[in-house]
Protein backbone atom coordinates (compact mmCIF):
# COMPACT_ATOMS: atom_id res chain seq x y z
CA UNK A 1 0.00 0.00 0.00
CA UNK A 2 2.70 2.41 1.00
CA UNK A 3 4.72 1.49 -2.01
CA UNK A 4 1.71 1.91 -4.21
CA UNK A 5 0.98 5.36 -2.85
CA UNK A 6 4.61 6.36 -3.20
CA UNK A 7 4.82 5.14 -6.76
CA UNK A 8 1.56 6.85 -7.64
CA UNK A 9 2.45 10.25 -6.26
CA UNK A 10 6.10 9.94 -7.21
CA UNK A 11 5.05 9.14 -10.75
CA UNK A 12 2.73 12.14 -10.87
CA UNK A 13 5.50 14.27 -9.44
CA UNK A 14 8.08 13.11 -11.98
CA UNK A 15 5.65 13.45 -14.82
CA UNK A 16 4.85 17.00 -13.80
CA UNK A 17 8.51 17.84 -13.69
CA UNK A 18 9.08 16.45 -17.17
CA UNK A 19 6.00 18.23 -18.44
CA UNK A 20 7.44 21.46 -17.09
CA UNK A 21 10.40 21.00 -19.33
CA UNK A 22 8.44 19.97 -22.37
CA UNK A 23 5.81 22.68 -22.38
CA UNK A 24 6.40 25.72 -24.55
CA UNK A 25 3.88 27.98 -22.97
CA UNK A 26 4.87 29.46 -19.69
CA UNK A 27 1.44 29.11 -18.15
CA UNK A 28 1.45 25.37 -18.84
CA UNK A 29 4.82 25.03 -17.17
CA UNK A 30 3.50 26.87 -14.16
CA UNK A 31 0.48 24.62 -13.90
CA UNK A 32 2.58 21.49 -14.12
CA UNK A 33 4.81 22.90 -11.38
CA UNK A 34 1.68 23.16 -9.22
CA UNK A 35 1.01 19.50 -9.90
CA UNK A 36 4.55 18.65 -8.82
CA UNK A 37 4.16 20.59 -5.60
CA UNK A 38 0.81 19.11 -4.78
CA UNK A 39 2.00 15.57 -5.21
CA UNK A 40 5.13 16.41 -3.18
CA UNK A 41 2.85 17.54 -0.36
CA UNK A 42 1.23 14.14 -0.39
CA UNK A 43 4.63 12.42 -0.33
CA UNK A 44 5.52 14.55 2.71
CA UNK A 45 2.35 13.27 4.33
CA UNK A 46 3.45 9.74 3.54
CA UNK A 47 6.69 10.51 5.35
CA UNK A 48 4.73 11.77 8.33
CA UNK A 49 5.62 15.43 7.93
CA UNK A 50 2.15 16.88 8.27
CA UNK A 51 3.22 20.43 9.08
CA UNK A 52 5.52 20.62 6.09
CA UNK A 53 2.91 19.13 3.82
CA UNK A 54 0.37 21.74 4.79
CA UNK A 55 2.86 24.56 4.52
CA UNK A 56 3.89 23.24 1.11
CA UNK A 57 0.36 23.58 -0.12
CA UNK A 58 -0.26 26.96 1.45
CA UNK A 59 3.02 28.72 0.64
CA UNK A 60 4.19 27.06 -2.53
CA UNK A 61 1.09 26.06 -4.32
CA UNK A 62 -1.00 28.82 -2.82
CA UNK A 63 1.18 31.89 -2.52
CA UNK A 64 4.25 31.52 -4.71
CA UNK A 65 2.65 29.92 -7.71
CA UNK A 66 -0.19 32.43 -7.63
CA UNK A 67 2.45 35.11 -7.79
CA UNK A 68 4.03 33.41 -10.79
CA UNK A 69 0.75 33.14 -12.59
CA UNK A 70 -0.01 36.78 -11.91
CA UNK A 71 3.31 37.79 -13.38
CA UNK A 72 2.77 35.60 -16.42
CA UNK A 73 -0.57 37.21 -16.90
CA UNK A 74 0.82 40.68 -16.30
CA UNK A 75 3.63 40.32 -18.79
CA UNK A 76 1.50 38.46 -21.25
CA UNK A 77 4.21 35.84 -21.60
CA UNK A 78 3.17 33.66 -24.45
CA UNK A 79 5.19 31.08 -26.28
CA UNK A 80 8.83 30.77 -25.76
CA UNK A 81 11.01 32.14 -28.50
CA UNK A 82 12.81 29.56 -30.52
CA UNK A 83 16.49 30.03 -30.56
CA UNK A 84 19.57 28.03 -31.14
CA UNK A 85 20.65 26.40 -27.93
CA UNK A 86 24.14 26.67 -26.68
CA UNK A 87 26.46 24.17 -28.26
CA UNK A 88 28.07 23.48 -24.95
CA UNK A 89 24.72 22.47 -23.51
CA UNK A 90 24.07 20.14 -26.41
CA UNK A 91 27.48 18.56 -26.45
CA UNK A 92 28.22 18.22 -22.79
CA UNK A 93 25.07 19.01 -20.88
CA UNK A 94 22.67 16.32 -22.02
CA UNK A 95 25.12 13.40 -22.03
CA UNK A 96 26.52 14.70 -18.76
CA UNK A 97 23.07 14.77 -17.27
CA UNK A 98 22.36 11.22 -18.32
CA UNK A 99 25.73 10.04 -17.11
CA UNK A 100 25.23 11.80 -13.78
CA UNK A 101 21.75 10.32 -13.42
CA UNK A 102 22.96 6.81 -14.16
CA UNK A 103 25.86 7.14 -11.74
CA UNK A 104 23.49 8.48 -9.06
CA UNK A 105 21.04 5.61 -9.47
CA UNK A 106 23.83 3.11 -9.52
CA UNK A 107 25.32 4.48 -6.32
CA UNK A 108 21.99 4.55 -4.53
CA UNK A 109 21.16 0.99 -5.57
CA UNK A 110 24.60 -0.12 -4.46
CA UNK A 111 23.79 1.00 -0.92
CA UNK A 112 20.34 -0.47 -0.85
CA UNK A 113 21.01 -3.60 1.11
CA UNK A 114 22.57 -1.63 3.92
CA UNK A 115 19.70 0.69 4.56
CA UNK A 116 16.67 0.41 6.63
CA UNK A 117 13.37 1.29 5.13
CA UNK A 118 11.22 4.19 6.07
CA UNK A 119 7.94 3.36 7.73
CA UNK A 120 5.07 5.58 7.14
CA UNK A 121 4.15 7.36 10.29
CA UNK A 122 7.30 6.21 11.98
CA UNK A 123 8.06 9.76 12.89
CA UNK A 124 5.02 11.50 14.17
CA UNK A 125 5.89 15.12 13.36
CA UNK A 126 2.92 17.06 14.64
CA UNK A 127 2.69 20.80 14.09
CA UNK A 128 2.97 21.59 17.81
CA UNK A 129 6.36 19.89 18.11
CA UNK A 130 7.65 21.67 15.01
CA UNK A 131 6.35 24.98 16.37
CA UNK A 132 7.96 24.30 19.72
CA UNK A 133 11.34 23.76 18.09
CA UNK A 134 10.87 26.77 15.87
CA UNK A 135 10.28 29.07 18.82
CA UNK A 136 12.98 27.60 21.03
CA UNK A 137 15.93 26.05 19.27
CA UNK A 138 15.60 28.06 16.05
CA UNK A 139 14.15 31.26 17.45
CA UNK A 140 16.96 33.47 16.24
CA UNK A 141 16.88 32.04 12.73
CA UNK A 142 13.12 32.41 12.68
CA UNK A 143 13.27 36.07 13.65
CA UNK A 144 16.01 36.75 11.15
CA UNK A 145 13.86 35.14 8.51
CA UNK A 146 11.14 37.63 9.25
CA UNK A 147 13.57 40.42 8.55
CA UNK A 148 14.57 38.71 5.32
CA UNK A 149 10.97 38.53 4.23
CA UNK A 150 10.44 42.17 5.15
CA UNK A 151 13.43 43.19 3.05
CA UNK A 152 12.19 41.02 0.19
CA UNK A 153 8.83 42.77 0.30
CA UNK A 154 10.45 46.19 0.24
CA UNK A 155 12.79 45.10 -2.54
CA UNK A 156 9.94 43.80 -4.61
CA UNK A 157 8.01 47.00 -4.16
CA UNK A 158 10.98 49.17 -5.05
CA UNK A 159 11.94 47.10 -8.08
CA UNK A 160 8.52 46.71 -9.54
CA UNK A 161 7.39 50.29 -8.99
CA UNK A 162 6.97 52.15 -12.22
CA UNK A 163 8.87 55.28 -13.05
CA UNK A 164 11.47 55.22 -10.32
CA UNK A 165 14.75 56.27 -11.70
Amino acid sequence: MHLFLFLLFGGICAGGAVNLLIQRKTINSALSLIVVMGSLALIYLLLGAEFVAVVQVIIYAGAIMVLYIFVIMLLNAGEEEQAKGSNVAKIFGIPGLFAGGIIGIWVLLQHRPAEQGVKIGALYGPADQVGWMLFNKYLLAFEVTSILVLIAIMGAVVLARRGNN
Binding site: A89, G93, V107, Q110
Partner: peptide, 26 residues
Protein backbone atom coordinates in the same frame (compact mmCIF):
# COMPACT_ATOMS: atom_id res chain seq x y z
CA UNK B 1 27.25 37.31 -21.37
CA UNK B 2 24.66 34.51 -21.63
CA UNK B 3 23.33 33.62 -18.22
CA UNK B 4 22.46 30.10 -19.25
CA UNK B 5 25.99 29.47 -20.39
CA UNK B 6 27.27 30.54 -16.98
CA UNK B 7 24.68 28.37 -15.31
CA UNK B 8 25.86 25.49 -17.42
CA UNK B 9 29.36 25.91 -16.12
CA UNK B 10 28.09 26.08 -12.57
CA UNK B 11 26.20 22.87 -13.15
CA UNK B 12 29.24 21.26 -14.70
CA UNK B 13 31.32 22.30 -11.70
CA UNK B 14 28.74 20.93 -9.31
CA UNK B 15 28.63 17.72 -11.28
CA UNK B 16 32.41 17.49 -11.09
CA UNK B 17 32.30 17.94 -7.30
CA UNK B 18 29.61 15.30 -6.97
CA UNK B 19 31.57 12.96 -9.20
CA UNK B 20 34.65 13.47 -7.07
CA UNK B 21 32.72 12.80 -3.88
CA UNK B 22 31.19 9.69 -5.35
CA UNK B 23 34.54 8.48 -6.49
CA UNK B 24 36.03 9.09 -3.06
CA UNK B 25 33.03 7.42 -1.39
CA UNK B 26 33.19 4.25 -3.45
Amino acid sequence: GLIRSYAGWVAAGAAAVVAYMVWMGT
